[in-house]
Design a binder for these strands. Structure first.
Lengths: 159, 159
DNA sequence: TTACATGTTAAAGTGCACTTTAAGTCAAGG
DNA sequence: CCTTGACTTAAAGTGCACTTTAACATGTAA
């Protein structure tokens, strides 16, 4: 039930202002723009993925750059990196290490993981394909077929 | 540190006994034979995947058939089924439904899941491949590239 | 007798990425 | 003045498949 919000620019200047450059957003607005929940943004901050923003009356105030950080997080997640790995990406290198080099270091490892993952999923796909052709009357028969197979030959219960 | 165990047949007759058919195993032995931890076996029982075995002095006593049940569980897990789905496989059908039909019903659904999963992993593999070719000096540059891209064309930060 | 290995239970812990809840602050609007 | 909505925090909850822990029972060996 996404209710309508009257959501005016809360702090700083917005799009239609004279020099329409330096914008400031509340956490709610940042969340809307990044299509995230505010809780996720706070979580990233607490996990060290997002720099602590300045505060106005105790409330977080973000600049446009926050959106770029969130984009990096999303990009990394889209490549299969965990929160811990993203933290490593951000803070696990000498500060003058270029992004290109950081990505290469982490992506090389992850690429192997990902290929393993693809292989596992494909193996499961194969097993499913054979299960669909199963003709066992009872599940115990399937079990017997698998148990018997382990010591002798290799065949999935298709009988 | 898997210490040596003297593990004699605790109950019932073992392999070398006259009519070497009806065997009984303790949970520890079943676990060894199935290459599982005893806690996993108790967990399967509590989850309704394994029939409650008879007891001797309060202790669980298993027959060879338990190994077949565990084989079915393993087979299903190898096809990507969750514990809840395996429970459905075992108890979610009219009791005279043949195994073949049970598998087909569940495997058809799961096959789609699995293909989605393969596609996702392959998409991640692609992203990783592009990240390895990234030449951004800073991560913010990657972020800017992704943020800018969203409204305009589609290109992963290779600059 | 003592010690040990193995078993029993219920309940809590694990790892991951968040979400939800509870209790409170604060400014604007009616 | 009071409500509303958005924000703040710390802590607990979620879902999954188990594992670990704590406290106790019991049969066998030294």
């Amino acid at each position: 039930m996404a209710r309508r919000k009257r959501e005016q620019e809360p702090i700083g200047r917005g799009v239609g202002t004279p020099s329409a450059t330096r914008q400031s957003w509340s956490i709610g607005e940042l969340a809307r723009r990044a299509d995230l929940q505010t809780s996720a943004i706070r979580y990233y901050e607490s996990a060290g993925l997002l720099p602590e923003p300045r505060r106005y009356n105790g409330r977080r105030v973000y600049e446009a750059s926050a959106l770029e950080w969130l984009a990096v997080i999303r990009l990394a997640q889209g490549a299969g990196f965990s929160i811990a790995e993203i933290r490593e990406l951000l803070h696990g290198f000498h500060s003058d290490t270029p992004a290109s080099q950081r990505w290469r270091a982490l992506a090389a490892r992850k690429l192997e993981d990902m290929r393993r993952r693809i292989d596992e999923a494909r193996a499961m796909e194969q097993v499913l394909g054979r299960l669909i052709q199963c003709e066992c009357p009872t599940l115990q028969d399937c079990g017997r077929a698998v148990v018997g197979e382990s010591a002798s030959e290799s065949e999935i219960p298709a009988r």
